[in-house]
Amino acid sequence: MGVLLDALDYLRDADSWTGRGGMLELLVQQLLVTLTALLAAMVVGLPVALWLGHLGRGGFLAINISNVGRAVPTFALLAIFVAGDPWGWTGGAFPGTGDVGPYGRAGISTLVALALFALPPLITNAYVAIREVPPDVRESARGMGMSGWQQFRRAELPLALPLVMSGVRLALVQVWATATIAALVAGPGLGRVITDGFFRTDYGKGIAGAIVVAAVALVLELCAAAVQRFLDPVRRAARRGEGEVSPEVSTLGQAGHEDG
């Protein structure tokens, strides 16, 4: 129990939050890295996955990327990036450990590793989401004379959005928690508090860091859930009272929520 009291003391001490290398700076760093990595993964992964889902092709790829991704340790990936350009494009310098603006030491390496880590859950969920749109909805959309793009934009995407969003939510929390691993290569983020406390046998400090990371994870999860609820097109349509939302369609949206 003494360790937990130490942790509380560390959390209550203003000095541990402020200043250079304080928890606030590290927290902002980690948030920045997490959000940028997630955004990058979304920009790259979602369009491809959604379009493959629309075409109904590449399912094998979409599912297996997720399995392979799980097998590659993020720590190993990060270590390889930190040791320098593995493909020899930049003479071994990039990504490396360079201090990049607000991202801190080894910021780019961390970003790339985390973005790669975020891809599998995003791709798999987005692909499955589009595939799970009931075939009769797709048929009727085609029957109404919608083009491929219209079908995708006006029928499949709105129905798939809740599941796609839960993929994003999952990725967000996972990326946030995994970002602490950057500390193992002296990278940015709150992981530093944890490893610092651990290596100096100041376990209170380490646990304090862990508590902050877990608390922020919870906050992020709640925020993401709120955003998801707000963006849900089925509910939005219901809120605006725009057109009749058939009960069938709204239960589909609900089911997506519960899956997350």
């Binding site: 928690a177 691993i181 193992l184 944890i194 490893t195 651990f198 646990i207 862990a210 877990a214 919870l218």
Partner: peptide
């Protein structure tokens, strides 16, 4: 438990 980062879980157990 899954939201506790693995990096944090080990130091938590070490004591």
């Amino acid at each position: 438990l899954y939201t506790v980062p693995s990096l944090a879980l080990f130091p938590l157990l070490v004591p």
